[in-house]
Design a protein around this nucleic acid. Structure first.
Lengths: 138, 138
DNA sequence: CAGCATCCTATATGATACTG
DNA sequence: CAGTATCATATAGGATGCTG
């Protein structure tokens, strides 16, 4: 299937399903980190991904493992050691994710700017409506 | 910035911010539909995107407009006509989204398969644990 | 170290009714 | 047609404490 073949775009189900999984708050960041670093332990990932809670990192990794995107290797040692890495399928996902990452880095500024303009306009409209209401009241 | 420049990957904020907006349930589908069809009215979008509620389509379009990705053109007619299309910024977003769309179409089958295998293994482990508990009890 | 279990809250989403 | 307003709910996500 080529990039110009839009026939699949008519059927949203596959895209929706994938987005429901990788579109959460942490999955893309986990895949990104594993793509960069290759193999990472649980707490290494937790340190790299700023703000993720232990619970959410666990859930995210389980989901990615379930979807065949991440491998989980347990070493029966004391203290326990668990290593995560991308599967071959996970590595292919790196490509579109990386594209999105680069787009974000390039265009985040423009988005922030657009938001500021939009919000300023909305605030002005709200103020205008207040004046109209005050005028209508008397 | 090149695709191989991973320095931006260390700073998750831009990516997180973009993902928080386009990572919701409908934004990517809206952008995809507008990218395919060029200009669409509200109810045309609603018909194309299966399952979206009026409320969520409105909210999604407002957010995309606020971020400078979608333009909203009102024609002061009766009945009212409102047309949506991608901005230039929105069109550039089409590229990484299209890549993700194609990846989904190609690899959704593998994900479904991986889930089935994972779930079967989990079920087996659960059954095994039940037996162990039964053994311990009796 | 790498988690699991529990409780709690915020938010996203949906359903429904109404409107210029 | 293209919304807005309100209510209801499911779920994502966070905080905390405990464990092998």
């Amino acid at each position: 299937m080529s990039l110009t073949d839009t026939s699949q775009h008519s059927n949203c189900s596959a895209m929706s399903d994938v987005l429901n999984r990788i579109g959460d708050k942490w999955s893309v960041l986990v895949v990104g980190m594993l793509g960069q670093n290759g193999v990472l332990r649980f707490n290494e990932l937790k340190r790299l991904i700023n703000g993720v809670s232990q619970r959410m990192l666990t859930l995210t990794l389980r989901n990615l493992e379930r979807d065949g995107l991440v491998t989980r290797t347990i070493y029966p040692e004391v203290p326990p050691r668990v290593e995560y890495s991308l599967t071959e399928l996970g590595k292919t996902l790196q490509v579109p994710i990386s594209a999105l990452w680069d787009w974000s880095a390039e265009n985040h500024g423009a988005i922030v700017e657009a938001r500021a303009i939009y919000d300023a306009r909305e605030t002005a409209v709200a103020a205008d409506n207040s004046r109209k209401i005050a005028y209508a009241r008397g």
